[in-house]
């Protein structure tokens, strides 16, 4: 069962002694439903300081990539206790949204998704290519929030990568919220 896009799974392990890019490794590539299931790993198996990223083939999971420079991310910040009960479910649902081409005609705006395992709180984000395309960004956010089963009162924010890159404090401003 072929997927609409070929996807690359990346692994990142932070190592202060090395340049950021050198800590990023391509794990595998999937382009069928069967491939996906035979390669995918549980997020909770990752140790703190590590990330997974699933990105369309040809797009690197970094701001500098030409398909990410003008884009941004829908960010889901998890409370510490959510790591044990919600993390794997939320990450798997995110991946199913990606490989299932679930964002209607806006799916072509989706670049990939990243999960960061961090002591101060894990984060899952869906990256899109054009932060100025309000219609697509908002529709992707609405579908994503619904697919994650987040309650109406849980607000998720969209931040442009340029804002995240230049933020002074730890919180970049939200360009959109749903």
């Amino acid at each position: 069962h072929p997927l609409q896009n070929r996807w690359v799974l990346w692994f990142f392990k932070s190592d202060r002694g090395r340049a950021w890019q050198d800590n990023l490794h391509q794990v595998t590539m999937v382009d069928t439903v069967e491939d996906f299931w035979s390669h995918i790993q549980l997020a909770s198996k990752l140790s703190p300081g590590c990330d997974y990223a699933l990105f369309k083939d040809g797009i690197q999971p970094m701001w500098e990539d030409s398909r990410n420079q003008q884009g941004g991310r829908w960010l889901v910040s998890l409370a510490k206790q959510q790591r044990h009960c919600e993390l794997d479910r939320l990450w798997l649902e995110t991946l199913l949204c990606l490989i299932g081409d679930s964002f209607e005609e806006h799916s072509r705006e989706v670049c990939g998704a990243v999960i960061n395992i961090r002591p101060k709180g894990d984060k899952i984000a869906v990256w899109t290519s054009d932060a100025e395309n309000q219609a697509s960004v908002l529709r992707i956010g609405q579908v994503y929030k619904e697919r994650l089963g987040l309650s109406m009162k849980t607000i998720i924010g969209y931040q442009a990568h340029t804002d995240t890159a230049s933020k002074s404090n730890s919180l970049a401003k939200n360009k959109f919220v749903v």
């Binding site: 069962h1 072929p2 997927l3 609409q4 069928t32 439903v33 069967e34 491939d35 996906f36 299931w37 035979s38 649902e93 199913l96 490989i99 299932g100 081409d101 679930s102 799916s107 697919r147």
Partner: peptide
Amino acid sequence: GKKQYDREFLLDFQFMPACI
């Protein structure tokens, strides 16, 4: 045509061995 799969369809393949 568009290859779009909903979550139920995808989950059906979760424990099926990949045919290599």
